[in-house]
Design a binder for these strands. Structure first.
Lengths: 225, 225
DNA sequence: CTATTATGAACCAATGATGAGCCAATTACT
DNA sequence: AGTAATTGGCTCATCATTGGTTCATAATAG
């Protein structure tokens, strides 16, 4: 190959990439090694690689190496990444915004069995003194209220909130801030919410839920935001 | 060969966690011990563990140790799967629920430059007669209002709504229902919202946004749900 | 001869790994 | 109750690897 050595190397690399030679972790050998392998100067190897980078086949990172470009991914995953890292404050703001209205919608949409399911969770929570188990039934009450609203998106949003709540630093916050007194307070507030649901009082359910949200926020942060 | 040793350790740990090696009490060895076991620096082991913590697989507590987190009851990917399939009706219900309150929060949280950005988007939308471009600036107005609320979770929720709106069924719905008359109506409603934001009138902004949401819903479905 | 390409070398900048040290929260022991 | 040990949180300086860049020189094509 007396002429256009870079093009020859480029062609060879393109074939080897297509053949999946580096598909394991997507990392190619270092430029210096590729140059050695093909017995060419590093600049020549670089020019071959440059063509593939410009083409979008490869990507390079100083100090790390050269990589086969992975296929594009859905941007929903980016949203996920951000969502799972939000602060407790932001989270509570959203809960206070969404949950009362979800309760109001539940009032108009819930079937009798939906109400029964909510009442059941409330009774279980009342009877439970173990923090972890109370926590579970507490979550169930809220989940079943969202379910009663019969809106898929609303339910999914609540699922997202639940996932966030199951992550740090929420665990710590809850562990430290829990007390029997507060458990009784929560139960009393749940009682109000459930009564409003039974009475089909949308405004009342919304108000009762807001009171509950404010109580949670006070317990967590010692103040309202 | 500093070729991402941390990634290797991470992969190994992930396997051992999945295999249930520490499922007894969920506690992993101390970082220093893990580093010794893999014959790597503690910082390297830390980076591997960091990745798993960020992912939600592990949780750490100073003075206590590193623990395997119980699997989420709800899987984020499932949520996303469901979310992207919700009906336009459910979607609009949630928009009507969230957007007015987001506007109210924006009133109290927005900086002067936030308001400027919203006004700019509004001016651009007013000046634009091409449906596609108007659509863009319309979306920008709402996006910037959410941004002005300065709540990461709220912004992410709005991003989710945007992704849903960009789905095929929506595109069709919007295309069929669009008209110059409706564009003018939307602009007038935006005008009201922007004025309330400038006046720092939270209740007014919330009301104006609700009017806007109702108008959108009327245009889409010919009725309110 | 001239222009392009290849070569070989040197140096820069970004990244990751290392090892060490100290702090702070928690637990266990006295 | 007080103390010591354990453990994660964090920072720093150092080194090796790797791509980013430039340059002078040689070889080749037209």
């Amino acid at each position: 190959m007396p002429k256009q050595i870079a093009s020859e190397v480029e062609k060879s690399l393109r074939q080897r990439i297509a053949a999946g030679e580096w598909s394991h972790d997507g990392q190619l050998p270092a430029e210096r090694d590729i140059a050695t392998e093909y017995a060419v100067a590093r600049n020549t190897a670089r020019r071959a690689i440059n063509a593939l980078v410009d083409e979008g086949v490869l990507s390079r990172h100083v100090g790390r190496g050269t990589f086969v470009r992975p296929a594009d991914e859905v941007d929903m995953n980016d949203i996920l990444q951000r969502v799972t890292g939000v602060s407790p404050t932001d989270m509570m703001t959203v809960r206070r915004l969404v949950e009362p209205q979800a309760a109001a919608i539940a009032v108009t949409m819930a079937s009798a069995s939906d109400i029964d399911a909510i009442v059941e969770a409330h009774e279980m929570a009342k009877a439970e003194r173990d923090p972890a188990k109370f926590e579970y039934w507490d979550a169930q009450i809220h989940h079943r209220i969202f379910k009663a609203a019969r809106n898929e998106l609303l339910m999914s949003l609540h699922d997202i909130l639940r996932v966030i709540r199951n992550r740090d630093p929420w665990i710590e916050l809850k562990r430290k801030r829990f007390s029997e007194e507060r458990r009784l307070g929560y139960c009393a507030q749940h009682e109000d919410i459930v009564r409003m649901l039974k009475d089909r009082d949308a405004a009342g359910a919304s108000d009762a839920m807001l009171v509950h949200m404010n109580a949670i926020e006070m317990n967590l942060f010692g103040r309202l935001n």
